[in-house]
Amino acid sequence: MTALGVDLADRIVRVVVVGDDGRVIARGQGSDAVEIARTVANGQKIACAGVASIDGASLAAGLAQIAGQIVACRAGAAAITAEAWVGAARGARHAACLKIGDRVLAGILLDGRPWTGAHGHAGAAAWLALNPVERQDYRKVGSLAAEVSSKGIARRLTWRIQAGDHSAVLERAGDLDAITSVHVFDGARAGDGVSVSVVRDTAKYIGMAVANLAVTLDPEVVVVTGSVAKASDLLLEPVRQECARRVPPGMMDTLRVEFSPLGDDGVAIGAARIAATAGAA
């Protein structure tokens, strides 16, 4: 049975059609979820659709002509479902994932089931408190998100340039407002000193967040997913090292810290899986 998955968690809407084995059959992205879903469905009525969002929006009315049963879920639950099904947490019963992109959130798997807490806030990792400094952006989006979201990473490089540091990234981007996290990661790969420093700090923040999830949940694995996972060549080992510094002695002997192989599709894949399993129940 094929299932449709819709990811509303980031600025760009992502939609996939997924087969029984987790393979993505079709994908699309843009700003209009229903139109993208209609395109990837290619005129076929899909058995079920899962819609993953921060607040549990369902899009039921818009998707009614495209899919049969429509299931709304939290983006964190979808992210960890995908990782446990076909990602870096495959086979785990206790796992967590940290999704970092336009937004920052977590997914938690306890005894094989996604867990969102008493009020749906268990995955609000954007608000993990990692710095005692009071800042307006911490109060607006959460301290972790302010530091490691796509905009947060770019902003930290921008602040360094404004403070007088020279970075070749500015020349590549054209102006300060055009700098993105991709520019920062590419700059680090090219040896740009300021970018290397920003990436080093990014790894520290992510490593601290992973450690916080690990010591709270005692999972088998913590997976870093989202667009930041594309920079695993720069971040994976420093994140593991930072996490190891901040967990109890011996914990890293049984804890895996991985970066997701699912790319930008993870949340949408998980949403499709949640819908498919709900339909089979």
Rank of each mutant, 00 (worst) to 15 (best):
W159V: 15
P261R: 10
A209L: 10
R27G: 04
P114K: 06
N42C: 09
D175E: 15
G43E: 09
P261A: 06
T180C: 01
R27Y: 07
M251S: 09
R240M: 11
A190F: 00
R240D: 09
L8W: 04
P238E: 06
G270Y: 10
R103L: 13
S195N: 02
G226F: 09
D218V: 10
E237A: 04
H94M: 05
G19Q: 08
R273V: 14
I80D: 05
L59N: 05
D233L: 05
L235N: 10
A146W: 00
V18S: 02
V228Y: 08
A9C: 07
L234W: 00
P219C: 02
D264F: 04
G187W: 02
G250W: 13
L217D: 04
A82R: 02
V17T: 01
S167Y: 00
D265Q: 09
V223C: 07
V228N: 10
A95C: 11
D265L: 06
P248S: 15
V239R: 15
L170N: 00
R103Q: 12
P219F: 01
L98G: 11
I179T: 01
G30T: 04
M208V: 03
I54Q: 12
A211H: 12
V247P: 08
V6L: 14
R11H: 14
K151E: 10
S195P: 00
G107S: 02
A61V: 11
A271F: 03
T116S: 13
A57T: 12
P261Y: 05
G279C: 12
D55H: 13
